[in-house]
């Protein structure tokens, strides 16, 4: 049965590729157009308060999180429903990560880290819907997320440990002569953290979506053979689903690792 459906879908793709091939096949690849920020209700000017497609897809992310975590757990079942078990899974996953990676005393940061993870993972997945807009592919968005993490962690470190927090940069186990050099490297790597967090997430998502668009452009140019790039898109889409989750996971776990540095700088 499943096999039959698969072959029928395959045949449909091939046939529709033949039937609906554009008359004037041409290479028209605009991989970056999908990232354009535009006002929702017309108008060219995008002021800071204008509702844009960013707003729309961020609010959809809020809606998805609300449905999953609030409506999903509304029954409070001892035996969970499907949505509730997904919500519990997400909760347990992040809670365990915070506890294992950042330590027991990091649990008070758990709601914040959960917010980050849920936002990134839902925005990534929503961005995978065809014709959608991916908010996490913008450096402005991921940059703010990364800077929030950076500021929160630096402030926490100094509040908890005062000047001792600077010991993070002074590698006491290294030979004395090397320490200033190492300190310089440590300071640079500390300030590169938010940059790398920001660019890793946005870059991964942007690269994946751009590649999908490039393949889609090939499909437009190849005429009746357009099913070949469409298969490639399908395969790449599966990879993107994986990447969407892994990048959210990596962002969250790196936040936890940095948080551990702030809570226990001597380690």
């Amino acid at each position: 049965m499943g096999k039959l459906v698969f072959y029928v879908a395959l045949a449909l793709v091939v046939v529709s590729g033949v039937l609906f091939a554009p008359e004037h096949a041409g290479l028209a690849i605009h991989p970056m157009d999908q990232f354009t920020v535009e006002a929702l209700f017309g108008g060219d000017h995008v002021a800071w308060y204008t509702p844009t497609n960013v707003t729309l897809w961020m609010f959809l992310a809020i809606g998805a999180i609300f449905v999953l975590l609030v409506l999903g757990s509304a029954n409070r079942g001892i035996v969970p429903s499907r949505a509730q078990s997904v919500a519990e899974l997400a909760y347990g996953f992040i809670y365990k990560m915070v506890e294992d990676v950042a330590g027991k005393d990091a649990v008070k940061f758990f709601p914040y880290i959960m917010t980050l993870f849920m936002f990134i993972v839902t925005a990534n997945f929503l961005g995978l819907i065809p014709m959608s807009f991916t908010t996490t592919s913008h450096f402005a968005v991921t940059g703010v997320l990364a800077v929030l993490v950076f500021v929160a962690i630096t402030v926490t470190g100094f509040v908890l440990h005062g000047a001792k927090f600077l010991g993070l940069f002074w590698v006491s186990s290294a030979p004395l002569a090397l320490r200033p050099v190492l300190a310089l490297i440590e300071v640079i790597s500390y300030f590169v953290r938010p940059v790398s967090l920001c660019i890793r997430l946005a870059g991964n998502i942007m690269a994946g979506h751009a590649v999908l668009k490039v393949f889609a452009g090939f499909a437009g140019a190849l005429g009746f053979a357009s099913f070949l790039p469409i298969f490639a898109i399908s395969a790449f889409y599966a990879l993107e689903v994986l990447v969407a989750f892994i990048q959210a996971y990596v962002f969250t776990i790196l936040t936890c690792v940095y948080l551990k540095d702030a809570l226990h700088p001597s380690h």
């Binding site: 790398s196 660019i199 890793r200 870059g203 991964n204 990596v250």
Partner: peptide, 14 residues
């Protein structure tokens, strides 16, 4: 493993 992969990949993304 994932942290290591993320660090290595970040430079490629750069």
């Amino acid at each position: 493993l994932f942290i290591g992969i993320a660090f290595a990949e970040a430079l490629g993304i750069f």
